[in-house]
Design a protein around this nucleic acid. Structure first.
Length: 689
DNA sequence: GAGTTTGAAACT
DNA sequence: CAGTTTCAAACTC
């Protein structure tokens, strides 16, 4: 288990962050299986590394976690003493005020369907990998710098690979996110914590630690997430998994573990992270429960139900990328850093105003389904904002906002999380604490991050829709079909926005009822061995020959496949029509490029010539060069160009060549004009000056 | 820019 | 599942 606090991350020498160095960490302290948030650690300003000789994993305690633990202790809760018992936990400071979050690997010893090697169940096998933690600013012991202003931060992901010593187990990779303050301020007030872990346990000073478990479905293939790897991705790389948790191979998991089912919700089916309230504060439950589509009512229970959306961030939001086991879909968990209430109090045990005992989705639909708006520049600049009961948006001081919705149709999604529409919020189960889960494709975070990294880079262009009758709530609407809100569209009576979130949710559900794959990409990879993309359903063209954009295959620049039901298809590899079209398209493209190049060159030449004549202007000894372009000169030039055009036409030159000839002639004309002007000025100078 | 064509989505 | 209608984008003039 590795825990590195944001500030420590920033202070950590590169050697620590380096993979090789981590691998070389000596395996001292045999038998160390737990991380204790001891008071000494809480005040420590140095990184404490504990190495598990058995698992070979190093532990880095961070101050934040320790402090959080201490805070919890002071609040009456026992410190986060985490016993290993085959599982390793991570105490972090993610989440609310004073709520260290414990990340725990799920107990997989008895879990079926988990792709693990037999060796995973052995005690030697590394069992836990945790990544980073973001702590609250007010929790942080600022080291040497009390600056608490929100700063634009950059996530720096450091990957630490750890190999298990001569074990059958796969090498462990630790990815530690490192917060980099772009403004050079050492004290970080917040950081977008990148959390990994199938099991998220959080504790609160006022509430018993709770375990939030995101468990992979039984039938989930975890091969993509080897139990001993944490796949991390820099935010710049959408294709990579941002943060992934690890499976706990330990068979000897705590007997006190409690299964925590994860329920997926869509629309009215709320993905609920259910927590067990009966678990003792320090007993972290693991879960391999089956994800189910359960209506919130069914799982809401009574008392302590806290369906919440994290979107209304009371304070500095933390963005956590979550890799849902078995899903290729990247999710982001936005976590409020504090337990701020609606009164705007920065911290405290008070519950949020949006908390409700009613597990009704509709009542909070406006904020539950989507993460509608995100600061265009960066999530890290999100300003603290009191919770409101209205549409919950993350607002910033920036006026520009960006929708957080799937930019592209959802990729193939594994069971349980299949059909999760973009922006779905994973809400904690009743009593599950004050955080919610905004399920957002990581690519959005990537976008946001990239925006933050590149400042005001251009946003991703998207064609505005022109819907008039569908209210943009049907798949006719590209925005809706792509899971995006309409933005700068030309649509009429649009309901694809925050103001009509309820209707929108309903429409999403309707679409999914009709077609569970409605929001999945149509263009996917073909069968095994088929490297080319292909339309998932195939087109059904009849008159376009599949050579117009009416055809979805052609539009996607892919060939029609055997699953297409098109008539008179000409969109296949050997199609002469298609080849002709391609050639024409290529020629057109070349032509455009040539024209652009010619214009650029001509412009450059003109500018250059004008610059050369500047001294004449400054000297005041002659006329400005362009004054030589008289009407007569213009006419003569045009005649020359026309003549050139006629010449090209008579010789049946292709258009490209004709244009070239004309432009060339134009250049010659300009040269002659300038030359004549210079000559005239010289003559004038010799006569009058 | 208006009108037409087209095929996916929606509906029956 | 098939036929029909609706719809918005693509296309043409």
């Amino acid at each position: 288990m590795d825990v590195v606090s944001p500030e420590l991350n920033s202070l950590l020498p590169d050697e620590i962050m380096d993979t090789e160095d981590i691998e070389d960490v000596p395996h001292s302290q045999p038998g160390t299986t737990a991380v204790h948030s001891e008071p000494t650690l809480a005040t420590s300003t140095t990184t404490t590394k504990t190495t598990d000789s058995v698992t070979g994993t190093s532990i880095i305690l961070n101050k934040v976690a320790s402090q959080a633990s201490e805070a919890a202790k002071s609040a009456g809760n026992p410190p986060q003493v985490i016993k290993q018992d085959g599982q390793k936990l991570l105490v972090t400071a993610i989440g609310k005020s004073g709520q260290p979050i414990v990340l725990q690997l799920p107990h997989t010893g008895s879990k079926p369907g988990i792709s693990q090697t037999a060796g995973d169940t052995k005690s030697q096998a590394p069992q836990f990998k945790v990544v980073t933690i973001g702590g609250r600013s007010d929790l942080k012991p600022v080291v040497g710098n009390q600056v608490t202003t929100l700063q634009t931060q950059q996530l720096k992901t450091v990957q630490i690979a750890k190999k298990t010593p001569a074990s059958s187990a796969a090498p462990i990779k630790f990815i530690i996110t490192k917060t980099v303050n772009s403004k050079g301020i050492s004290a970080q007030t917040s950081m977008p914590p990148v959390i990994t872990g199938r099991v998220l346990t959080q504790s609160s000073p006022v509430m018993p630690p709770r375990t939030i478990t995101l468990s992979e479905p039984h039938n989930t293939n975890l091969q993509s997430i080897p139990g001993k790897k944490i796949a991390i991705s820099p935010l710049k790389t959408p294709s990579k998994v941002t943060v992934v948790s690890v499976a706990s191979p330990t068979s000897g998991a705590s007997q006190k573990s409690v299964a925590l089912p994860v329920n997926v919700a869509l629309g009215q089916q709320i993905l609920t992270v259910q927590q067990s309230t009966s678990v003792s504060p320090v007993k972290v439950a693991t879960s391999q429960s089956t994800t189910q589509n359960i209506k919130p009512v069914a799982v809401g229970g009574v008392g302590g139900s806290q369906f919440k959306t994290i979107i209304p961030l009371a304070t500095q939001p933390n963005v956590q990328q979550i890799q849902v086991p078995g899903s290729r879909f990247h999710y982001v968990r936005l976590v409020t850093a504090t337990t701020a209430s609606s009164t705007g109090q920065p911290s405290g045990p008070s519950t949020s105003s949006i908390q409700t005992a009613k597990p009704m989705v509709v009542s909070t639909a406006a904020v539950r389904m989507s993460v509608p708006v995100v600061p265009a520049q960066t999530m890290k600049q999100v300003a603290p904002k009191p919770l409101t009961s209205g549409p919950q948006v993350v607002t910033t001081t920036q006026t520009q906002q960006r929708l957080i919705m799937p930019a592209t149709p959802l990729p193939q999604i594994q069971p349980n999380f299949t059909n999760l529409p973009p922006g779905t919020v994973l809400t904690p189960a009743p009593g599950g604490g004050n955080v919610g889960y905004a399920v957002v494709p990581a690519q959005y975070v990537t976008q946001v991050s990239e925006l933050s990294l590149s400042a005001e880079t251009t946003s991703r262009p998207r064609k505005p829709c022109n819907c008039t009758k569908s209210q943009c709530l049907k798949l006719y609407c590209d925005c809706f079909a792509n899971g995006e809100f309409c933005n700068n569209c030309n649509c009429n009576n649009c309901f694809n926005n925050l103001e009509h979130e309820t209707e929108r949710l309903k429409a999403i559900k309707t679409c999914l009822d009709r077609n569970p794959e409605a929001f999945k990409p149509k263009i996917g990879k073909g069968k095994e061995g088929e490297s080319d993309r292909r339309h998932s359903k195939g087109c059904n063209c009849k008159r376009s020959g599949c050579l117009k954009n009416y055809c979805e295959c052609y539009e996607a620049k892919i060939m029609c496949s055997s699953i297409c039901k098109c008539i008179g298809c000409k969109n296949f590899e050997e199609s002469p029509e298609r080849k002709t079209l391609m050639h024409l398209a290529d020629a057109a493209e070349v032509r455009v490029q040539q024209q652009t190049a010619a214009k650029t060159k001509l412009s450059s030449q003109i500018s250059d010539l004008l610059m050369r004549t500047t001294p004449v202007i400054s000297s005041g000894s002659g006329r400005l060069p362009y004054t030589f372009v008289t009407k007569e000169v213009l006419e003569a030039t045009c005649e020359c160009l026309l003549e050139q055009a006629k010449k090209a036409e008579q010789t049946h030159q292709p258009q490209v060549e004709a244009e070239r000839m004309i432009l060339e002639e134009f250049g010659h004309c300009l040269m002659r004009i300038i030359s004549s002007a210079g000559k005239a000025k010289s003559d004038c100078a010799s006569i009058n000056c």
